[in-house]
Design a protein around this nucleic acid. Structure first.
Lengths: 347, 347
DNA sequence: TTGAAAGCGGTACCAG
DNA sequence: CTGGTACCGCTTTCAA
């Protein structure tokens, strides 16, 4: 990598020491009081239009823009919401964030991100980030909250909403993961499969992701209803991620009586399953059919059959709940129910 | 979607009106002055250890945590950096963000996101978001800056760093897109292709993305060097995105003397190319070879051959530059040079 | 080594 | 309708 240290052309203005204009500068310039300027700024109608114009002019001339920090301090709110999530290990989170961003922006709220990929970061998130004065509310995505974390948050009076995972004392938006697992399994059953493997997260994963286990319950329920005996040797669980899923699936597909179908608890894992099949020269779906969960963006071009859940909408709805809670609304729980199998080329 | 309005179990603490502890409360509780508490908070060594302990105790007992807003106002810095980018239309941005997040977190900086998907949002970003008091610096990813925007930013004294696109007066981190385009084209040439199509962004796209055109220049350069005449009918440019690329490619592949290879200016577009080939029942790479650009996450499972650029590293480096600039360093320009063709199954 | 007090840049109450 | 001013919660002189 080539690094060029440059002379700064013209020199940065900040070293010129020209202090940014404040509300007092505007007041002086316009020959009014700061109170009046503040009123104009906040569109409080009492101001005479003549004054208003004078102030507006001064603002323009000075290039004044109010300090949001000062405003936050005075108002006691930051006009921003915080989002805590494992953004980079879990692609679906990004899609949910999309919905959050859209709604937050729409309501004039800024977005602070706090990525959580390790247990330390997780602790940091709640220690340093979840401060009522930094953000007006917190959106926690795909991360379970411990009881005492919830308590601490409530003690701080910080509005919180969870997305993808619920908690009895916290507003949240979730889907019926059990039902989703059933749908996936029924899809395979309907295609005549009976040896259907499951690849998902281990229940004691470091972040306590729970949806995988819920989906596995749905898988069991569907098998039971169909009278297909569960086969423990067909269930593989490990660390969340493509690589791990791939490794688990290779093992699964190498055993004597190998499964003819695999239900992966997430699309990310389904991709690993696909890679495993390819590595073993197995055709999909002829030799082994695959279904995932989520319908992330990559699913379509891959031709991956999957259970679609409304990711973006979950973020949007979560943001709406949070905004409502910030505004003082009572706790609300939303269960999104647009789950459906999207059939593509892997089944 | 089922919505449950819940009673709030126990009632949220915020309505109890228990005001959060302030530095004054701590001072009173510990029987010292606020100045002393502040010193303890900031690890200023002059404080007698006895005092220090008393203060620490008070802090613990009251569950006090300092207000970062007040701190920002007093200090004149927010300890946060802002990131402006088209996060959701451009998957590579997310990967870059990963690098940013990692470095920012490492240095104790928060991250504010401002998504820009429309020209209005773009304007809003610079009007409302790029305030020195909201963020200590701005990272602009994959978005070109206009001269007067740069000027405004510099006038405000807001440190800015650009990633993926440069500007003569702004520190930035870029790659050699022309070289990348050459690499991709040479790869095809080396495999005996001479009818190599190009699918990229139109030069007058709404955000002024420029890398596509640079890569096209590299494509031309490579053809020229190889003595292969350029064929204008093999160049298709349109709105950035998979769908558009797909449509363009379908047209390309339907013409009489169709190309045997396609170079897509981004992986996103390459995916569209792949879909087009599939739609026309053309085998890849036998009937048509495909190479993309970026090496985003989806490329590997798709088996897409592509020109890899160090996305995450670009974000990390950009964050480092910004942090350095915030600390007062001179303008720096970094050209990342780890470009390489990653050969997979589409060539 | 500690404390009193003046900011930081807004908002909003209270008079006039 | 407008102005004066006391906050908001923290940092940082300046004196003691």
């Amino acid at each position: 990598m080539a690094v060029r240290l440059g002379h700064v052309e013209g020199g940065p203005a900040r070293s010129e020491g020209r202090r940014a204009a404040t509300i007092r500068d505007v007041a002086r310039h316009a020959g009014v009081s700061v109170a009046t300027v503040s009123r104009v700024l906040n569109d409080i109608p009492v101001v005479r239009s003549e004054m208003r114009d004078r102030v507006r002019e001064a603002i323009a001339e000075l290039g004044y823009r109010p300090s949001s920090t000062a405003r936050s301090l005075s108002l006691g709110r930051s006009q921003a919401i915080g989002v805590v999530a494992p953004f980079f290990t879990t692609p679906s989170v990004v899609e949910r964030l999309r919905g959050v961003s859209q709604r937050a922006g729409h309501h004039g709220y800024g977005l602070m991100l706090f990525d959580v990929e390790t247990p330390e970061q997780r602790a940091g998130a709640f220690r340093d980030f979840a401060r009522l004065d930094r953000v007006d509310g917190l959106l926690v995505i795909s991360l379970p909250l411990l009881d005492d974390e919830v308590e601490a948050l409530q003690r701080d009076g910080l509005p919180v909403v969870m997305v993808d995972i619920g908690h009895p004392r916290v507003p949240h938006v979730v889907i019926d993961d059990v039902r989703g697992g059933e749908l996936a399994t029924e899809h395979m059953l309907a295609r005549g499969h009976t040896r259907i493997a499951f690849v998902g997260d281990r229940p004691d994963n470091p972040f306590g992701f729970t949806s995988s286990e819920q989906r596995r319950r749905g898988y069991h329920a569907a098998l039971r209803k169909a009278g297909v005996p569960a086969a423990p040797e067909l269930e593989a669980r490990g660390r969340h991620g493509r690589e791990e899923a791939r490794a688990l699936t290779v093992a699964l597909l190498r055993c004597d009586d190998r499964p003819t179908a695999v239900f992966a608890a997430s699309d990310t894992q389904a991709v690993g399953v696909l890679e495993a099949a390819r590595a073993l020269d197995l055709r999909v779906p002829e030799d082994v059919a695959v279904i995932g969960f989520d319908d992330i963006e990559i699913a379509e071009p891959l031709g991956l059959t999957t259970v679609r859940q409304p990711l973006r909408q979950s973020g949007a709805r979560g943001a709406d709940l949070l905004l409502a809670e910030i505004a003082g609304a009572a706790m609300q729980v939303t269960e999104l129910d647009a789950l459906a199998v999207v059939e593509r080329r892997t089944t």
